[in-house]
Design a binder for these strands. Sequence first.
DNA 1: ATAATACTTAGCAATGGGGCTAAGTATCGG
DNA 2: CCGATACTTAGCCCCATTGCTAAGTATTAT
Lengths: 113, 113
Amino acid sequence: MSKYESHLDLCFSALGDPTRRMILQRLARGKASVSELAACHDMALPSFMAHLKKLETAGLITSAKQGRTRICQLSPDAFAPAKDWLSEQSDIWEGRLDRFDTYIETLLQEDDT
Amino acid sequence: MSKYESHLDLCFSALGDPTRRMILQRLARGKASVSELAACHDMALPSFMAHLKKLETAGLITSAKQGRTRICQLSPDAFAPAKDWLSEQSDIWEGRLDRFDTYIETLLQEDDT
DNA sequence: ATAATACTTAGCAATGGGGCTAAGTATCGG
DNA sequence: CCGATACTTAGCCCCATTGCTAAGTATTAT
């Protein structure tokens, strides 16, 4: 369960941390070096780098070294897999004919709890 | 950092597990009892229930007891917060004028690595 | 009343996530 | 060449996650 983690596992898990989402928000506005990114996070550099590594492993960002500096940026279509999965589920849910009835029905049943 | 976890943290973290995504996929097709949901997962019931609890804490599903049976279903708009966050980031990314140039530039720079 | 069913609670073990410091490597500037 | 800069690696700590079993509770069926 840890060796064959799917891309979606990695992707959603990576998104489940506020530090990492903030990094992504910053990178959506343009590429940046590790230390530029780290500047506004009150965290030791190795800890911060671990977050970058998770984002890269999840395919959400890419990075490359220029001299002693590492430049990071969002992967093109970084969010597509996550968005696609979510949309798929929403579509199935919204396509259900009895969706609304089911919900009302349950609201009523909650009185019995 | 663990007491004030945002809704998005809980939501994305919940989505980062294949068992939990399978539960959501099943529930997108209609509500079901705990044992119905558990049937196709090779896992002890308490372990399985822990997954349901995470989904409920994240606001992705709701559940209510009918007699000795607990019925689960997707929350209406369960995926909206996650989808909205992702769309927001994508929009910012796609709105960047230098997006394409930036990417090409980096591809070229990778030769130096 | 009893037994079966459907969870539920309690408690434990293994693992991984997320933080740290200290020390190492690889440029760059002078 | 030497010091400063920008990561990078190694190793440790603590707590959360994810699985388990065993035992408990609440309904339903007989």
